Amino acid sequence: MTLQTAERPRLAPTAQVPRTGRKERDRVSRWQIWVPLSLYLLFTLVPFYWMLVFAFRPRGSTSLLPWPITFENFETVWNDLSFALFFKNSLMVGIASLVMTTVVALAGGYALARYEFRGKRLFMIGMLCTQFIPGAMMLIPLFEIFRALGLVNSLWSLVIAETVFQLPLSLILISGFIKNVPVELEQAAWVDGCTRLRGFFAVVLPLLRPALVAVGSFAFIHSWNNFLFALMFVSEQEKFTVPVGLSYTLGEFSVDFGALAAGGVVAAVPVVLVFAVIQRYLVQGLSAGAVKG
């Protein structure tokens, strides 16, 4: 007795793409990616290059390169224009805004993520709608409120204003991040005898590092760069921040470009350092906070 094996259907040979054609296609795709990115990078870096040129080259020089390098403009800004005082004021406002925004957003974000209450969706829509309101429209109401509270010409007015404007986005980011943390982890901590507060600090808070870094960095950088609030709510020169101090290099009939560029370099250093430290947490915090609404 013979066993007849059924013939397997033969598969049609797959067409192989020539290696030369594949290399040409990869080469074209690389050009399509790198050319627009290079143009965008050039467009972005040219203003920074000119700022460095004006900051480090001697006054009166028209060279395209900052040579010979001089620090005269930095000495003028730091000593003659009291830039050290402006730098300290901006640092105080930025750190205070960071702390207040993070603490309030952490408490509010936990409530939005873990509790259900009437009007929760409308509340979140209202917070989102506040992001469409320009800060200039709120100057007069905020000024009247701060005058009634005796906070005009005080750095606390800047801290409160920055915290209020940064809270809506911070709340949404942190609440979305907390929703991604399984509630079963907290319940396990409660079974072990932890209170809700202790369970939050022991279980949830360590997992919120990317979200806290994203929220805190945005609060610090926004308060560091804000010019409008510092110009309107503070009138004493001893309480000016960096953006307002830089405006004093603009005279009525002339502009000290060297001092202005040197002040811009000094003002950009903290922002660059912050992004260099937090860049690995920033994308993770923003993307995790945006997964769930």
Rank of each mutant, 00 (worst) to 15 (best):
S247C: 03
S235W: 09
A262Q: 03
V272S: 06
S223F: 06
A276Q: 06
L273Q: 01
V265Q: 00
A276E: 04
T241I: 07
V283N: 14
G251A: 08
L273A: 14
F227P: 05
E252C: 02
Y281A: 14
P243N: 12
A214C: 06
P243V: 10
V213H: 01
V283T: 15
H222C: 08
I278K: 05
N226Y: 11
A262N: 00
W224K: 12
L246A: 07
A268L: 07
L246R: 10
V272M: 13
V265S: 04
F253R: 07
A261W: 00
V265L: 01
V234E: 08
V213Y: 03
P243E: 10
G264D: 00
Q237K: 15
H222I: 06
I221L: 14
T249I: 07
V274Q: 01
S217C: 13
S217L: 14
H222Q: 13
V271E: 00
P243Q: 11
V274G: 03
V266T: 01
L246K: 08
L246G: 07
E238L: 05
Q237W: 06
F257Q: 09
V242R: 10
L246W: 08
A214V: 06
P243D: 10
E236S: 15
E252H: 07
A259K: 02
L260C: 03
N226S: 15
A214H: 04
V265H: 01
S235A: 12
T249F: 15
L260I: 04
L250A: 10
A267H: 01
F257Y: 14
T241G: 06
V213G: 02
V255W: 04
F218V: 13
A276D: 04
V215F: 04
G245N: 10
F229I: 13
G258L: 04
S217P: 01
Q279E: 14
I278D: 10
A268R: 02
V266H: 00
E252M: 07
I221E: 11
V215P: 04
V271H: 00
Q279S: 14
Y248C: 04
G258R: 01
V271N: 03
K239L: 15
T241E: 11
E252W: 02
V234Q: 10
F220S: 11
T241S: 12
L231H: 13
F240S: 10
V269R: 01
N225F: 08
L231Y: 15
F233Y: 15
